[in-house]
């Protein structure tokens, strides 16, 4: 049996998640040696058609062409893994979902008719079956290497689903919400970044998306009791994982509440 065939594919994204693979400087040459890289345009001019044993997919679906392209990648891939918030939840560009995309296009381009876009930015899983989702904006390169190594060893990959809060406790970081009253999404955001933001004296802003069973209503209620407005609490959920169901629903619930009150 030959080496597993790897493909890396890009949709609407910043390139940062596939860059995480090239940023794993210490492991890069070993990983590259353990697989056959068949499609990774950012790294290699050698591009070959599928099938692929492992397909890493970065970015969200935002154009009619991309909605077709992902279907072929799925057909070619034995194991399809999304990397990052764009591929997993639609990314920051999903802020336009529910807004007027045509108006957004007019705001950026003088002749928007040259460019075809879909009304929504959607995660890969809305289009094809996804075998594993690696979270983060950006992903954690150590998690990526670990997941690839699991696959190479024939194990099912796993990443922790607990919240950022637990990682702050582990690191011994003083809670920014308790000590300074800073709003923080740590209690509802999935681990993976190593709880960086609170260690730099700022609140978590949710790069890794909702943790397992996040209690968003409880967190919102706490923030409202502390004097935050519903608009602010809703806003804090509206960034890199705005279209992840748990964040989207809570943000919508608060928005509806504001409408009712007016």
């Amino acid at each position: 049996m030959g080496k597993p065939k790897l493909g890396v594919f890009k949709f609407a994204s910043c390139d940062g998640c596939q860059l995480s693979l090239l940023d794993a400087e210490d492991q890069l040459l070993a990983v590259a040696d353990a697989v056959e890289i068949r499609h990774f345009p950012e790294a290699s001019s050698r591009m070959e058609a599928g099938p692929y044993d492992i397909a890493l997919v970065e970015g969200s679906i935002t154009t009619p062409h991309d909605a077709e392209r992902i279907q072929q990648i799925r057909r070619d891939a034995k194991f399809l893994m999304t990397i990052g918030a764009c591929a997993t939840s639609g990314g920051i560009q999903a802020l336009r979902n529910g807004a007027d995309t045509a108006e957004f296009m007019r705001a950026v381009y003088a002749s928007p008719e040259y460019i075809q876009v879909l009304d929504k930015s959607t995660p890969i899983a809305e289009h094809v079956k996804v075998d594993f989702e690696l979270r983060g904006c950006p992903i954690n390169q150590y998690q990526l290497i670990e997941v690839i190594q699991s696959l190479l060893a024939g194990r099912n990959p796993r990443t922790p689903r607990h919240s950022v809060c637990l990682d702050c406790k582990r690191r011994g970081t003083v809670c920014v919400t308790v000590a300074q009253g800073t709003p923080c999404l740590g209690p509802v955001t999935q681990s993976g970044c190593n709880a960086i933001c609170p260690s730099y004296h700022r609140g978590c802003y949710g790069c890794y998306g909702p943790a397992a069973q996040p209690n968003l209503v409880s967190l919102s209620t706490h923030a409202l009791n502390e004097g935050a407005s519903a608009a602010e609490v809703s806003h804090n959920l509206r960034n890199f994982n705005v279209y992840a169901p748990a964040f989207r629903n809570e943000s919508q619930r608060l928005t509806d509440q504001i409408k009712e009150q007016n």
Binding site: A12, T62, R96, A99, T101, Y109
Partner: peptide, 9 residues
Amino acid sequence: EPPRLFEAL
């Protein structure tokens, strides 16, 4: 590359 419309959002 698909537009992501940062200036608008």
